[in-house]
Design a protein around this nucleic acid. Structure first.
Length: 387
DNA sequence: TCTGGGGTCCTAGGACCC
DNA sequence: TCTGGGGTCCTAGGACCC
């Protein structure tokens, strides 16, 4: 199994572990006995490694179609419409190449819409005889495949919607596809209608070749050890602010609003959580300016004697730094602060990111826990694979 | 004792405009 | 006692995704 941040919950499982009845998302302390009994191997998350391997897979995929949308760290949509070749054969070639170049096994679903392609991939992944590739080519095949899937297997149908559908007597994905569209509109809104159209082969979600800019940026972490002192909570919030501002500048953005939030253990009785938002006169990406308001807000959120478990920072009202509307009364020398941030970011682009903000503190007793991390084989010289 | 993090879209309702 | 019609923008909360 692979664990979430702080070695908290199970977020990925091998087939063997699934068979032992380990559910997705269970806290690891609840399966300690199973882990010991069956000697389950446990790994912390290793996002550096996953991100790098993901890049390699995506680069490989992009050689097979000029139109590729990287949808998430482990999924991509490729536009194969207009390809004259046998698509099944082509997909098998893609699969083989990715495997050979990166060592990563992938499965591929082919269909006229994204939702159907995801369903096809679902089948390709589950069924042994598919060999990792499955195509939903014609109506008959689609109807047949969907009749074997439950609504909850479909992209866009979550737990709540699946339960509502069940209560209404819709038990298969085919049933969903054939449902009355007005009824769907009334009960599930426009998103429901889109899913049903997609299942019927009418594309509602085109390939996003030029992904939009982020609309929000969040940096939040649970603490490795609970935090009681205001000073430590301030340090954590400062750290998250610095990281959020960095992400902001990486994309050339500035934020109009900043929200900071903190909470105690939400699984305990009388848990406490609170947030504050500050609206900047002029959108900014200047770390010191953000930290200044975050620290004030943290003081308002803080309650003496409480054990804080998590805090975070949310940036919204994002716009391109170059397009920011300046205020009539702004005093800050924007050019100067931007130059300063550029310099800081440049120095920190080294892998050891040597510069830190004083407000982040040095000790960081609340720092995140990773007790079972595998090596960052592909991004750190010291952690290269040894043979 | 121990329970993750980062996103998007849609909708209703409030506040405002003429 | 009686109180219009048409519109926009913003936000919180719900639902979903990985």
């Amino acid at each position: 199994v692979v664990l979430s941040n702080n070695d908290g919950c199970v977020i990925a499982r091998s087939e063997e572990v699934k068979k032992l009845g380990v559910d997705m998302g269970v806290p690891v302390f609840k399966i300690r006995r199973l882990i010991e009994k069956y000697r389950i191997r446990v790994f912390s998350s290793n996002y550096t490694l996953y991100g790098d391997m993901s890049d390699r897979v995506m680069q490989t995929l992009s050689r097979f179609s000029p139109d590729i949308e990287v949808y998430s760290i482990d999924e991509a949509f490729l536009d194969l419409s207009g390809f004259k070749t046998d698509l099944n054969e082509y997909a098998e070639r893609i699969r083989k190449t990715v495997r050979q170049w990166t060592g990563i096994p992938v499965s591929i679903g082919i269909a006229p819409t994204k939702t159907l392609a995801k369903a096809a991939n679902h089948i390709a992944k589950k069924s042994k005889k598919c060999n990792g590739v499955f195509q939903l080519s014609d109506r008959k095949k689609i109807e047949e495949a969907l009749s074997k899937l439950s609504p909850g297997d479909i992209w866009g149908i979550g737990e709540r919607t699946a339960a509502k559908l069940k209560r209404a007597g819709i038990r298969t994905a085919a049933g969903l596809k054939n449902a009355d569209i007005n009824w769907i509109k009334n009960r599930f809104g426009i998103t429901g209608v889109r899913t049903v159209y997609e299942l019927a082969g009418h594309s509602c979600y085109p390939l996003e070749l030029n992904p939009d800019l982020n609309k929000s940026i969040v940096v939040s972490r649970s603490f490795g050890k609970s935090v009681e002192a205001l000073e430590e909570l301030k340090q954590a919030a400062s750290s998250h602010t610095a990281r959020a501002a960095e992400k902001l500048r990486e994309q050339g953005l500035a934020a109009g609003r900043i929200t900071v939030f903190a909470n105690t253990n939400r699984f305990k009785k009388n848990s406490y959580s609170n947030c504050r938002t500050y609206i900047f006169d002029t959108a900014t990406s200047y770390t010191p300016q953000m930290m200044e308001v975050v620290l004030k807000m943290i003081e308002q959120i803080y309650r003496k004697g409480m054990n804080f478990k998590k805090c975070g920072v949310l940036l919204t009202g994002l716009e391109k730094q170059d397009n920011v509307q300046l205020g009539l009364f702004g005093k800050r020398d924007n050019k100067k602060s931007q130059r300063l941030m550029n310099t800081v970011d440049f120095i920190n682009s080294r892998t050891d990111s040597p510069l830190r903000w004083a407000g982040e503190g040095l000790e960081k007793p609340w720092k995140i826990k990773f007790n079972h991390r595998s090596k960052r084989y592909t991004t750190r010289w010291e952690e290269l694979l040894e043979i």
